[in-house]
Design a protein around this nucleic acid. Structure first.
Length: 229
DNA sequence: GCGACAG
DNA sequence: ATCTTGTCGC
């Protein structure tokens, strides 16, 4: 996959990283997604010995539920986990893995937030700018904002808001499970992000693209752990 | 000062 | 995220 010229280097201090987020947040855009979304890419990361990161992208066909392609990279971890700065830890590896994709996904989904971030610039937004393509976030827990608890039925939705208004939506993807937190990343609308989330959660709480990517990095981590031992 | 805090 | 078996609840 051909990617745009990188917007900046990744060797930044946490303080500089925060400044960078504030600056880049202005470049994020909401826009209608093309009508025929079929290929949905899902990402996830795993860590080995806390010093190496495994980043993977899986391309899932929403029309027939098949796995089209999967690519991954293993790199050295260069940034600590700091709430609000997740992209500086995971994005570099995810971008490298995305370059290896041979198919062109219609939208990229990540395990984390996009706009539903303290500075409105979560991992999904950061990746959206670097990939120059539609992205959205579907997180397992909340980072910021307030919300009501959606009804306990598949498809129930509650608005996630912060001072300026709606920054995402809390979606119950299956009855009897905890809801997921959906927000836009870049070049997509919140309505489409929620729709894609529900269409991708065919049988589990989490979307298939992201769920499959998680299974893949877990498998890769096991084999790498064995090489060490 | 006291919580909250994506993965 | 990661360390980890059985076990409480629907």
């Amino acid at each position: 996959m051909k990617l745009p010229t990188p917007l900046h280097l990744w060797s930044l201090s946490p303080t500089r990283a925060v400044s960078m987020q504030k600056r880049l947040a202005a470049r994020v855009h909401t826009s209608a997604l093309s009508k025929d979304v079929r290929l949905v890419a899902g990402a996830d990361c795993a860590f080995v010995e806390s010093d190496r990161i495994i980043a993977c992208w899986v391309v899932w066909d929403i029309s027939d539920g098949t796995l089209v392609e999967k690519q991954h990279v293993v790199r050295a971890v260069r940034f600590p986990y700091v709430p609000g700065l997740l992209s500086f830890r995971e994005a570099p590896a995810l971008i490298a893995a995305a370059r290896k994709l041979r198919t062109e996904p219609h939208v990229f989904m990540v395990d984390g937030h996009g706009l539903a971030h303290p500075r409105r610039f979560g991992l999904a937004c950061h990746l959206g700018l670097f990939l120059g393509r539609p992205t959205m976030g579907c997180a397992k827990s909340r980072l910021c904002g307030v919300n009501c608890d959606p009804a306990d039925r598949r498809g129930a939705i509650a608005s996630l808001t912060d001072r300026e208004g709606e920054i995402g939506r809390v979606v119950r993807t299956q009855r009897g499970v905890r809801p997921v937190y959906v927000s836009i990343g870049h070049l997509i609308t919140l309505d489409d992000a929620v729709r894609l989330t529900l269409e991708s959660c065919t049988k589990f709480r989490l979307p298939e693209p992201t769920r499959l990517a998680h299974a893949e990095v877990s498998r890769l981590r096991r084999s790498l752990s064995l090489e060490i031992a």
